[in-house]
């Protein structure tokens, strides 16, 4: 492991502890770096007018969910790390029934909130412990643990699995 890796891990752990704290406090972390995700729509009263803007650190402040799985779009099994969508919406105080997930290319899909599991899907920000770029489905990817449960190998799950996620709109 390189020195930078250690540093990064240390920072992540620190941020994680802080994020956890802030998440538990019911407030969303404020973005300090590049905003990679916007949550807007029907949110709690505390939400800012334009919705929440999250950067990577902000996302990392949530309790991460990790799993390894293959996907129909990639070769081989990969390890995904991210925030469960449900946790994120809860933290954002979402009050709607669906959430519209929109990708960078404009692709959008409505996900019924009731269909969300506790730990799936996640909004993955690491693949194999590293961030991934826009050129490679990054920076955020809604992923299900397809290998863990057959039910995730469905057309709906595949449709919900959008990459290059940039916005979540609760409605």
């Amino acid at each position: 492991m390189t020195l930078t890796a250690y540093l990064r891990a240390g920072t992540a752990a620190l941020v994680l502890a802080l994020g956890s704290f802030s998440a538990m406090a019911g407030s969303m972390p404020e973005a300090t770096g590049e905003v990679i995700l916007i949550i807007d729509g029907a949110l709690g009263a505390d939400a800012p007018a334009g919705g929440y803007e999250l950067d990577l650190v902000g996302l990392q402040s949530f309790v991460p969910e990790e799993f390894s799985t293959s996907t129909i779009w990639t070769e081989g099994s990969m390890k995904f790390t991210g925030v469960p969508l449900r946790d994120l919406l809860t933290a954002a105080g979402a009050v709607g029934t669906t959430v519209t997930a929109e990708a960078l290319n404009g692709y959008a899909v409505d996900i019924p909130i009731a269909d969300l599991d506790d730990k799936a899907p996640i909004i993955a920000y690491f693949i194999n412990d590293e961030t991934f770029s826009r050129r490679d489905k990054g920076p955020l990817w809604v992923v299900y643990p397809y290998d863990r449960d057959e039910k995730y190998k469905s057309e709906i799950s595949f449709a919900f699995s959008i990459w290059q996620l940039q916005r979540l709109t609760v409605n």
Partner: peptide, 12 residues
């Protein structure tokens, strides 16, 4: 962004 998305598509 468009280039990246194109890149992403072709890469896919």
């Amino acid at each position: 962004l468009r280039f990246d998305l194109l890149y992403s598509r072709t890469h896919l």
